[in-house]
């Protein structure tokens, strides 16, 4: 029982962290039809920036600063690497995304000297708490609630505000929405800013659990979050969140058995199964020519 609770707890917490990354993927894909391969690396950069910022500043300054820096990074990546390729074939944009991911990883390796960096202890989040006899960190408990709160906020933003309306319009039909006078570039930039901000918050939670950061630590969570987004139906935010929770929990159950090696592979197996059986995912829009 104790074991099951601990697995479930860490599953839910990891799932929540994946969910925050997956939202960024699903929103960008919804509008640009682009797998933003650099998103996982943005997530990793968020962790690294906090490591360096927290070394010289108190946390109440460095955390907001980090989140702003990551939002700016997301904006810059879109402007520099994706915007010039707006009319290019989809493959070129994807290659550009891979290039950005390569650049960020290499820069991180250069800057850190390739050494793993240890994440600062965050007050409260890093403290231990005992639930049903299993010791865990507060972050585990906080994550799902925080994720839910953020998703509700995001839903309000998307469904009730003007920029949300523009985002929905852009996701529906890119060209028509330009004809309607929507400034598509600012909508896309805004999407990247939101996605990056959520990834930054996700990195706060994730790296409180896994306290070491290496330049590659973003790529696996990034890919898994993408799988979560596909699993939930790409373009759908609730879908991405539910997909992320399912993947997080399944992954931790597998880690609890003797098949630990397959914890990453399982995610991809799930991806292939869902793509073959129900390409639109759990809650995806019904567009048949997508896959």
């Amino acid at each position: 029982m104790q074991f099951a609770v601990s697995i479930l707890l860490s599953g839910i917490s990891v799932g929540g962290q994946y969910a925050l990354i997956a939202i960024g993927y699903t929103m960008v894909y919804g509008i640009l039809r682009l797998i933003n391969f650099a998103h996982g690396d943005v997530f990793m950069t968020a962790g690294l920036i906090l490591v360096y910022a927290a070394a010289s500043m108190p946390l109440y300054i460095s955390v907001p600063l980090m989140i702003m820096a990551i939002a700016a990074l997301g904006f810059c990546i879109e402007r520099v690497a994706y915007k010039p390729l707006r009319s290019a074939p989809r493959m070129s944009v994807m290659i550009s995304a891979i290039g950005v991911s390569f650049l960020i990883q290499n820069f991180a390796t250069y800057y850190t000297g390739g050494l793993p960096q240890s994440y600062p202890r965050l007050p409260f989040l890093s403290e231990s708490v005992i639930i049903y006899g299993t010791s865990t960190k507060w972050v585990t408990i906080v994550t799902p609630f925080l994720v839910l709160a953020l998703v509700v906020l995001l839903q309000i933003l998307i469904n009730k505000t003007k920029i949300g309306l523009a985002m929905r319009a852009a996701a529906k039909d890119f060209e028509t929405c330009q004809l309607m006078g929507i400034k598509i570039n600012s909508v896309i930039s805004f999407t990247f800013v939101i996605g990056s901000t959520l990834a930054a918050i996700g990195s706060l939670l994730y790296f409180t659990n896994y306290t070491q950061i290496v330049p590659l630590s973003g790529s696996m969570p990034g890919l898994k979050a993408f799988v979560a987004a596909v699993f939930g139906g790409i373009g759908s935010i609730p879908g991405a969140v539910i997909g992320a929770f399912i993947i997080g929990i399944c992954e931790n159950i597998i880690k609890g058995t003797s098949f630990t090696v397959f914890s990453d592979a399982f995610t991809f197996a799930l991806l292939i199964i869902i793509l073959v059986l129900k390409p639109t995912g759990l809650f995806g829009e019904k567009v048949t020519d997508k896959v």
Partner: peptide, 29 residues
């Protein structure tokens, strides 16, 4: 057999996934 029915980026991510699965299988004790 299953994967080639997919298009563009879905094919990319599915094949990437298969590479990861193969890697995991070869590391299996």
């Amino acid at each position: 057999l299953p994967v080639l029915k997919l298009k563009s980026d879905y094919l990319a991510i599915a094949t990437l996934g298969f590479a990861e699965i193969i890697r995991a299988i070869f590391q299996w004790e």
